[in-house]
């Protein structure tokens, strides 16, 4: 054990650790903040924006210290503020937007492609807040999964309210894990319009990736005592087959179950409640009768199926496969023998 006898390795290690502890938080980090906060800790500090509206310039040192950005200095983000004269020189100098992309490159890049960036005047702070940003995993964060209903709802109140009443929203509020929130379906930074083929809520993606990401996941579905059968059965139904081929008129998950307002079939407000089914089917099949909407929709043919119809279809399949194997096998055998005999008989 040479490293036990020869203790010379302590020297470089000691130097490295000294550098580590001293080099981390430099003078700029805390020294600068104290200078800024000397003014901005004043709760009455305010300015007037272009419309003459009062904007508070107060920053709580306590809350900032608890934020995820506590370790960095004011000037790391507010790069335009060169000295304490900015207040005297006028608002313009300090009014520049903070460039989050300087550190959060990937998020910035994705956000630039989003509908929020392209079509709306929205920046990072609208969703994430500014001085008191908390990590995503913190339940007090505005971007925490359960808080997103309020955060997104600030601009999308209707959708937010619908979602809050849906089974997904209710279960989410109860704090169930792996319940979807806004971003589960819509994505995070790169939220796109539903007409964009890249969007996860584009009709071509809804039944391929968006809903099946949970509803075709065995583990998640077992947790809620569901099965992945609806997804499987949909893919093999006429709707699903035609949809997989790119049919824009074919029903996908959302056509029958709704979008934000998805409710269980036991809920009288649900699109798939027995009283509403005829109307739901009727949106595409106007001649749908009362009987049309009865029966098990997401059935999977199996001779061991629960449903009588599933059993019948399962048996039809078994009988037909046997028939095909026997008939086609027999014909192939017969013809192959015929071919063999004629080939043998044929004189070269």
């Amino acid at each position: 054990m040479i490293w036990r006898k020869n203790k010379a390795w302590i020297v470089p290690l000691g130097i490295l650790s000294l550098l580590f502890f001293l080099g981390g938080p430099g003078e700029t980090a805390w020294g600068g903040n104290a200078q800024c906060l000397s003014c901005h800790q004043d709760k009455d500090l305010a300015k007037k924006d272009a419309r003459g509206k009062k904007v508070s310039l107060y920053v709580s040192e306590d809350l900032f210290g608890k934020s995820v950005h506590a370790g960095i200095s004011c000037t790391d983000c507010h790069t335009r503020i060169l000295d304490d004269a900015h207040a005297g020189k006028g608002v313009k100098e300090a009014d520049r937007k903070v460039d989050c992309g300087a550190c959060h490159e990937m998020s910035e890049k994705l956000f630039k492609t989003s509908v929020h960036s392209l079509r709306a005047e929205i920046a990072c702070k609208e969703c994430h807040g500014h001085h008191y940003i908390k990590p995503l995993t913190d339940p007090r964060s505005v971007t925490y999964r359960t808080n997103l209903i309020q955060t997104c709802g600030a601009c999308h109140p209707e959708e937010s309210e619908q979602f809050g009443g849906s089974i997904h929203g209710v279960e989410l509020s109860r704090g169930r894990p792996n319940q979807p929130t806004c971003t589960t379906c819509h994505g995070t930074h790169a939220i796109r319009a539903k007409s964009d083929p890249e969007s996860p809520v584009h009709f071509r993606k809804v039944a391929i990736t968006t809903c099946p990401q949970c509803h075709a996941a065995e583990r998640i579905m077992r947790e809620y005592r569901f099965t992945t059968q609806p997804v499987r059965s949909y893919y093999d139904s006429f709707h699903g087959l035609s949809y997989r081929g790119g049919d824009a008129f074919s029903a996908n998950c959302a056509s029958c179950h709704g979008v934000h307002d998805i409710r269980p079939s036991s809920d009288p407000k649900s699109m798939i409640h027995r009283d509403n089914l005829q109307q739901t089917c009727g949106t595409c099949h106007p001649r749908a009768s009362e009987n049309f909407a009865k029966g098990k929709i997401h059935s999977v043919a199996s001779i061991k199926g629960e449903d009588f119809g599933e059993k019948v279809v399962g048996w039809v399949r078994v009988v037909y496969i046997l028939l095909i194997v026997m008939v086609i096998g027999g014909l192939t055998f017969f013809n192959f023998m015929d071919w063999l005999r004629k080939t043998i008989d044929r004189k070269p």
């Binding site: 009768s289 009987n291 029966g295 098990k296 059935s299 449903d307 119809g309």
Partner: peptide, 19 residues
């Protein structure tokens, strides 16, 4: 299907599909 399902249950439609 609309006319057929006036009188017959949905599983008969599935049987027809399989056949």
């Amino acid at each position: 299907k609309e006319e057929w399902l006036l009188f017959f249950p949905l599983w008969t439609f599935e049987v027809a599909r399989a056949i």
